[in-house]
Design a protein around this nucleic acid. Structure first.
Length: 103
DNA sequence: AAAGTGACGGCCG
DNA sequence: CCGGCCGCCACTT
């Protein structure tokens, strides 16, 4: 696994329950604020989606990762978010309430 | 090495 | 908030 990807995955573990984060926030966290796209790639090639809560990552608009894989994937993702305490409406979350920043 | 691709973001309207 | 346009980064071809 590439070092870059590892940083991204490690960042996922820092996200508390009831919160979500964006690709951009993660990118900033690893000192590469313009690598939001690369972050998406890292999650896409996530070696273990069970261990790493990639479902807590949404884009700037608050949408879930629709291209998670198959259609059932997003449903599962939505459920897990709700179970984590994040309200999901129309496959989107309220970033003003649930966005976690790596302060 | 160069060009293409994509779980994206900021800016403008 | 949504869509269009462009710029970024890592990875693949």
């Amino acid at each position: 696994m590439k070092a870059f990807q590892k940083k991204v995955l490690e960042s996922l573990l820092l996200i508390p329950d009831g919160k979500v984060t964006t690709y951009g926030e993660i990118a900033k966290h690893i000192k590469k604020k313009k690598a939001s796209r690369a972050v998406g790639n890292a999650l896409h090639t996530n070696p273990d989606p069970i261990k790493y809560p990639c479902f807590k990552v949404v884009n700037r608009k608050g949408e879930l990762a629709i291209n998670f894989g198959d259609k059932n994937g997003i449903e599962t993702q939505k459920k897990r978010l709700i179970k984590s305490g994040v309200k999901v409406v129309n496959y989107k979350v309220d970033l003003s309430k649930y966005l976690y920043k790596y302060e």
